[in-house]
């Protein structure tokens, strides 16, 4: 069993972080909320109701998951940013060129990156591009797995400031003390059990 009796509450706009050793189940919590792990036994509850197809669809619609190595899924950065707008769910809502530039600038990136090949961008840039894409989609819940790990101090500052937006709720997994210090709540996981909440 990977997780057992993990129960927590995060309010809208709150920034929460899961800490713990490798293999303690931190990342699993984030992915389980997105319905990415089939349950062997037990159940997951979200807002008091069992995580069924509709609940997962609702979470996926409002949440962005960004891991250590985000997949951009396109050839160029511009295509990666516009990728979701080719899907039926977001068709016709593609952002303007100005919007793209403004979002990139907020995250310490410039418009010149738009035409770069995704395979040529660094890990830190990938993470920021993934955050930018989530912002363009209007996501309000950010599930972040070590998202500041590959960032230089300047880029990290830009991301931290972006996430400080009171309208964004963040549920994260991190070892980075700078990020942990900025979080309202921290949870400690050990061997799949919640051992501390502060």
């Amino acid at each position: 069993m990977i997780l057992r009796d993990v129960s927590f509450e995060v309010r809208e706009g709150e920034k929460a972080v899961f800490c713990g050793r490798s293999g303690s189940g931190k990342s699993t919590v984030l992915k389980a909320l997105l319905g990415l792990y089939p349950l062997a036994t037990g159940a997951i509850y979200f807002e008091g109701r069992s995580l069924d197809r509709d609940a997962v669809a609702a979470i996926r619609a409002c949440a962005a998951y960004i891991g250590q190595e985000p997949v951009l899924g396109a050839d160029t950065v511009r295509d990666a940013l516009l990728l979701p707008f080719g899907f039926t769910a977001h068709r016709g809502k593609a952002p303007s060129a100005e919007m793209l530039t403004r979002t990139l600038l907020r995250l310490g990136l410039t418009a010149s990156i738009l035409d770069q090949d995704c395979i040529r961008v660094s890990g830190g840039e990938k993470q920021r591009i993934a955050v930018a894409r989530a912002q363009l989609l209007g996501k309000r819940l950010y599930l972040l797995d070590e998202v500041t790990s590959a960032l230089d101090p300047e880029s990290k500052q830009a991301v931290l400031e972006f996430l400080a937006d009171p309208g964004l709720t963040v549920l994260s997994v991190a070892h980075d003390p700078d990020w942990i210090a900025r979080c309202d709540t921290s949870f400690e996981l050990d061997e799949g059990r919640l051992t501390r909440a502060a």
Binding site: R60, V71, T88, H90, R133
Partner: peptide, 16 residues
């Protein structure tokens, strides 16, 4: 798998 799941989480239907 990560790429496929990324598409899903970006709003793609299973077919997309």
């Amino acid at each position: 798998e990560n790429e496929y799941l990324t598409y899903l989480l970006l709003g793609a239907s299973r077919r997309e």
